[in-house]
């Protein structure tokens, strides 16, 4: 049976590419969710010190209160100085899981469009005309944690390649690991992270549209979530050492 002349020879790479193309609907939402989750964790790890200070202040206030009555006085030992780090990390974990619920999990509903750039432009223009806290905070937080996540994945890849290949190829492993890490960070930012920002904007827009727009109330739409996410977003920007891949 004659093979049609237009079909290229089907190599393994081509077959893999075709399979990847067919499975985009499955792995892209997972990738977005995973990247945001990695970024959220990176940020939560960085805010640990701030949380420790908050735990210290809260513990001092709590001890001052419960020590006033003999019945509640034993509660002073509930959070001793020794448990400070445990409590601070537990708070960081809860914060991370809450941020994952707001940012990472919704990414599983990502629906890829051919005109993502156009979709982003339209929604960004709408956000400028009808701004709400939700429309601004969620895409910004998503962008920040996705950037931090990209750097964290890049660093993980760099370290693994650097120390994994050093025995086999010597000092060339350093350059190779650096190159791969930089390529991975650039790839993640340009192919995955920006999709996460677009989808965060899509979701924020849809949720904002459910409430009749009033400029006076726009600030309160999505405010609790923003208060939870913005400190993490700022920590994420601090934890995104883009320049370190070039050093």
């Amino acid at each position: 049976m004659p093979v049609p002349a237009t079909d290229p020879p089907a190599g393994a790479l081509d077959a893999a590419a075709r399979l990847a193309d067919r499975l985009r609907w499955f792995f892209l939402p997972l990738a977005l969710c995973a990247l945001v989750a990695v970024g959220v964790h990176t940020a939560a790890d960085v805010v640990g010190e701030i949380i420790l200070r908050m735990v210290d202040a809260a513990d001092a206030a709590f001890d001052g209160l419960v020590s006033r009555w003999s019945v509640t006085a034993p509660l002073v030992d509930l959070v001793g100085p020794s448990q400070r780090i445990f409590f601070a990390r537990a708070v960081a974990l809860l914060w991370e899981l809450a941020a994952d619920a707001l940012l990472a999990l919704p990414m599983l509903g990502y629906d890829e469009r051919a005109d993502e750039v156009k979709r982003f432009r339209e929604l960004a223009a709408k956000a400028r005309v009808r701004p709400t806290t939700l429309r601004v905070a969620h895409p910004f937080a998503t962008g920040a944690v996705a950037l931090a996540g990209s750097c964290a994945v890049g660093r993980l890849l760099e370290g693994t390649l650097h120390f994994g290949l050093r025995g086999a190829i010597g000092s060339a492993a350093d350059a190779l690991a650096r190159g791969c890490a930089l390529a991975a960070v650039l790839g993640l930012v340009s192919f995955i992270a920006w999709r996460a920002v677009v989808y965060a904007l899509v979701r924020a827009d849809a949720r904002s549209d459910r409430i009749p727009f009033r400029r006076a109330r726009a600030f309160t739409v999505g405010l609790p979530g923003a208060l939870l996410l913005l400190p993490l977003a700022l920590a994420a920007l601090r934890a995104a050492p883009l320049l370190s891949f070039l050093r």
Binding site: V38, V153, G187
Partner: peptide, 13 residues
């Protein structure tokens, strides 16, 4: 490329 990047993200997460 997206598949490779997705695998990296899933591995890290």
């Amino acid at each position: 490329a997206d598949l490779v990047l997705a695998a990296l993200c899933l591995w890290a997460a």
